[in-house]
Design a protein around this nucleic acid. Sequence first.
DNA 1: TAGTGGTCTAGACCACGCT
DNA 2: GCGTGGTCTAGACCACTAA
Lengths: 241, 241
Amino acid sequence: MVRGEPFYQKIRSDIENKIKDGYYKQGEYLPSEAKLESLYKVSRTTVRNAVRSLVDDGYLTIVRGKGTKVTPSKLSASYPNLMSFTDVIQKQGIKSSVLKMKISQTFPTQEVAEKLDIDLDEKVYEIYRERAADDEPICIHVSFIPCKYLEGNDVSLIEKKQSLYKALEEDFNISIQTAQDNISAIGASSHVAKILNIEKGDPVLFIKRVAYDQNNVIVEYSEINIRGDRYSQMVTLRQRL
Amino acid sequence: MVRGEPFYQKIRSDIENKIKDGYYKQGEYLPSEAKLESLYKVSRTTVRNAVRSLVDDGYLTIVRGKGTKVTPSKLSASYPNLMSFTDVIQKQGIKSSVLKMKISQTFPTQEVAEKLDIDLDEKVYEIYRERAADDEPICIHVSFIPCKYLEGNDVSLIEKKQSLYKALEEDFNISIQTAQDNISAIGASSHVAKILNIEKGDPVLFIKRVAYDQNNVIVEYSEINIRGDRYSQMVTLRQRL
DNA sequence: TAGTGGTCTAGACCACGCT
DNA sequence: GCGTGGTCTAGACCACTAA
């Protein structure tokens, strides 16, 4: 029809809200697709599009030959696969803050250039952040983004927002769609230990992340050190295919 | 039509093979959907179904108004989101082996019962494994699975296979679809240190995993200790919605 | 403007789970 | 056998991109 939003997304939102409101309860079956057709006065394709989207996000579960029910597990549908640090922390009801942030232009190191797939003489922004949860230093996050992706807009906008990903999306039209994390456990260097207020050699989660935008272009490489004793990374993994 | 496999899956396989064979090259555009329709003599819905499936798995990237191209990034489409330990190790060309395996029946601890969402008096199998990569001990993996899910079949089948998930799928008709990992970095306990051949307190990746089957039923809880200096967990995260 | 994918219709037949 | 979702057809109009 007309409106900005496609029908199937409106239907999706409607069903999503009914789940959240408890109108459709956990484990309960939704009306059949045929009924949803007449309920929303759309074709089956449209209904199925909406349903598929909710299944993909873990809200609904389809049981062949029986029906479609609200996912009856504790696997919270509200944990999307890719969340920014800020999102994760806030989801847990913890106050997150940025203790220190510095943005500078620099040339990439060998490794950074490789990860970003750029030349060594192509300038990048280095975004250094020290983050806290409940006012305790918990994480050192260094991001590298090629300067070319942040042209024509004020980089200081990033400093004003808590979340780098939000800033990228709202101010630079870059939406991070995929990220590949390499997660390991290492002993804190003396530099890291000092900032995180732990002992040298204490276990630290070390994450190297390569992030891709909506066109599968590499836009960010970051290295993250997280205090091992105060934080754990939640990851939802879905079988594909 | 008739055959066991739906059309769109055959088309999917065909396109997938053409990508692997280099017939469609990285970054190159596929024929338009209209052309694929006449190429395969099917309707647009069917073509789109095949394409959507490949997009979901990261093989293809759609550019609005332009076309659909082979994903032009280094983000390997061959890293699915959810892989068993064996898969991950072998993907890296490393020889993986099980040094020690013990399967026993036991009652769950408080935590295990909670994670599996069962009662304290419901028996579980405890599957204890020490694994090696290139003959070096690298990982201690303890899985708990409620006995009720493994009824009517020989549990020792698990011992004969390298991969627990493969055994579950092939012998018990349980397919792990989703897992929620809680990943942290801790110092090795003296027990863990001894087995992994490291010092007490050395950094170790510690993963608590809750795994769900095709019906979103919790079937496995496991705790995994991995040597921090020899292994890193690769995780591909996708933005959903 | 022409070509692409995005959305949608109004049907159809099939495979599966239950009774 | 009946109801459910799974697959499929043959169209249609729209929004976006590029020439």
